[in-house]
Protein backbone atom coordinates (compact mmCIF):
# COMPACT_ATOMS: atom_id res chain seq x y z
CA UNK A 1 0.00 0.00 0.00
CA UNK A 2 2.93 2.35 0.72
CA UNK A 3 4.84 1.35 -2.35
CA UNK A 4 5.06 3.92 -5.12
CA UNK A 5 3.34 3.10 -8.42
CA UNK A 6 6.67 2.62 -10.14
CA UNK A 7 7.66 -0.05 -7.64
CA UNK A 8 4.30 -1.79 -8.10
CA UNK A 9 4.65 -1.68 -11.87
CA UNK A 10 8.07 -3.24 -11.66
CA UNK A 11 6.83 -6.13 -9.55
CA UNK A 12 3.42 -6.93 -11.05
CA UNK A 13 3.87 -10.31 -12.62
CA UNK A 14 1.05 -12.80 -13.17
CA UNK A 15 0.67 -16.35 -14.35
CA UNK A 16 -1.98 -17.04 -16.98
CA UNK A 17 -3.68 -20.40 -17.53
CA UNK A 18 -5.46 -21.21 -20.81
CA UNK A 19 -7.98 -24.05 -20.72
CA UNK A 20 -9.89 -26.28 -23.12
CA UNK A 21 -10.55 -24.68 -26.55
CA UNK A 22 -8.48 -21.60 -25.67
CA UNK A 23 -5.42 -23.72 -24.79
CA UNK A 24 -5.61 -25.36 -28.22
CA UNK A 25 -6.29 -22.12 -30.10
CA UNK A 26 -3.34 -20.36 -28.40
CA UNK A 27 -1.09 -23.45 -28.49
CA UNK A 28 -0.23 -22.58 -24.89
CA UNK A 29 -1.13 -23.88 -21.43
CA UNK A 30 -0.24 -20.51 -19.93
CA UNK A 31 2.62 -18.10 -19.40
CA UNK A 32 4.18 -15.62 -17.01
CA UNK A 33 3.35 -12.04 -17.98
CA UNK A 34 4.48 -8.63 -16.73
CA UNK A 35 1.49 -6.33 -16.31
CA UNK A 36 2.02 -2.60 -16.77
CA UNK A 37 0.85 -0.29 -14.00
CA UNK A 38 -0.27 -0.99 -10.47
CA UNK A 39 -4.02 -1.04 -11.17
CA UNK A 40 -4.35 -3.10 -14.32
CA UNK A 41 -7.65 -4.90 -14.69
CA UNK A 42 -8.80 -8.03 -16.49
CA UNK A 43 -10.04 -5.73 -19.29
CA UNK A 44 -6.49 -4.36 -19.67
CA UNK A 45 -5.07 -7.87 -19.78
CA UNK A 46 -7.54 -8.95 -22.47
CA UNK A 47 -6.71 -5.84 -24.52
CA UNK A 48 -3.01 -6.68 -24.32
CA UNK A 49 -3.59 -10.30 -25.34
CA UNK A 50 -5.91 -9.27 -28.22
CA UNK A 51 -3.24 -6.96 -29.59
CA UNK A 52 -1.15 -10.06 -30.39
CA UNK A 53 -3.53 -10.66 -33.29
CA UNK A 54 -4.27 -14.06 -34.84
CA UNK A 55 -6.04 -16.57 -32.62
CA UNK A 56 -5.74 -14.17 -29.66
CA UNK A 57 -7.73 -11.48 -31.46
CA UNK A 58 -10.31 -13.99 -32.71
CA UNK A 59 -10.92 -15.93 -29.47
CA UNK A 60 -10.90 -12.86 -27.22
CA UNK A 61 -12.87 -10.58 -29.56
CA UNK A 62 -15.52 -8.51 -27.77
CA UNK A 63 -18.75 -10.51 -27.76
CA UNK A 64 -17.01 -13.89 -27.58
CA UNK A 65 -18.00 -15.79 -24.44
CA UNK A 66 -14.81 -15.98 -22.39
CA UNK A 67 -14.77 -16.66 -18.67
CA UNK A 68 -12.01 -15.39 -16.41
CA UNK A 69 -10.95 -16.61 -12.98
CA UNK A 70 -8.43 -14.88 -10.71
CA UNK A 71 -6.83 -17.22 -8.19
CA UNK A 72 -9.48 -19.80 -9.11
CA UNK A 73 -12.46 -17.53 -8.36
CA UNK A 74 -14.63 -16.18 -11.20
CA UNK A 75 -13.71 -12.58 -12.01
CA UNK A 76 -15.10 -9.72 -14.09
CA UNK A 77 -13.58 -7.25 -16.55
CA UNK A 78 -13.12 -4.71 -13.74
CA UNK A 79 -11.28 -7.09 -11.39
CA UNK A 80 -7.86 -5.62 -10.54
CA UNK A 81 -4.84 -7.85 -11.12
CA UNK A 82 -2.33 -8.18 -8.27
CA UNK A 83 1.25 -9.35 -8.27
CA UNK A 84 1.46 -13.14 -8.24
CA UNK A 85 -2.14 -13.70 -9.36
CA UNK A 86 -3.12 -16.79 -11.33
CA UNK A 87 -5.44 -15.63 -14.13
CA UNK A 88 -7.29 -18.35 -16.04
CA UNK A 89 -9.15 -17.85 -19.33
CA UNK A 90 -11.65 -20.45 -20.50
CA UNK A 91 -14.85 -20.97 -22.53
CA UNK A 92 -18.28 -21.40 -20.91
CA UNK A 93 -18.35 -24.71 -19.04
CA UNK A 94 -19.89 -27.88 -20.49
CA UNK A 95 -19.62 -30.55 -17.78
CA UNK A 96 -22.22 -32.83 -16.28
Amino acid sequence: MLASPSVLAASTSIRTVYLARLREAFSSRGETLAVAGGNATIADLLDALRSRGGAWAIELAPGRAVRVAVNQVLATLSTVIRDGDEVALFPPVTGG
Binding site: L19, V93, G95
Partner: peptide, 23 residues
Protein backbone atom coordinates in the same frame (compact mmCIF):
# COMPACT_ATOMS: atom_id res chain seq x y z
CA UNK B 1 -25.68 -25.54 -11.06
CA UNK B 2 -22.91 -28.02 -11.85
CA UNK B 3 -23.68 -27.78 -15.57
CA UNK B 4 -23.22 -24.00 -15.65
CA UNK B 5 -20.79 -23.20 -12.81
CA UNK B 6 -18.29 -26.05 -12.42
CA UNK B 7 -15.23 -25.80 -14.69
CA UNK B 8 -15.47 -28.87 -16.91
CA UNK B 9 -15.20 -28.96 -20.70
CA UNK B 10 -16.23 -31.74 -23.06
CA UNK B 11 -14.51 -32.51 -26.33
CA UNK B 12 -16.19 -35.00 -28.65
CA UNK B 13 -14.49 -37.32 -31.10
CA UNK B 14 -16.73 -37.76 -34.13
CA UNK B 15 -16.36 -39.21 -37.61
CA UNK B 16 -15.95 -35.62 -38.81
CA UNK B 17 -13.14 -34.89 -36.35
CA UNK B 18 -12.76 -33.57 -32.81
CA UNK B 19 -14.96 -30.74 -31.59
CA UNK B 20 -15.43 -28.86 -28.31
CA UNK B 21 -18.99 -29.01 -27.04
CA UNK B 22 -20.65 -25.59 -27.01
CA UNK B 23 -22.46 -24.38 -23.89
Amino acid sequence: YLKTKAPFWKKERTAEGDRWVEA
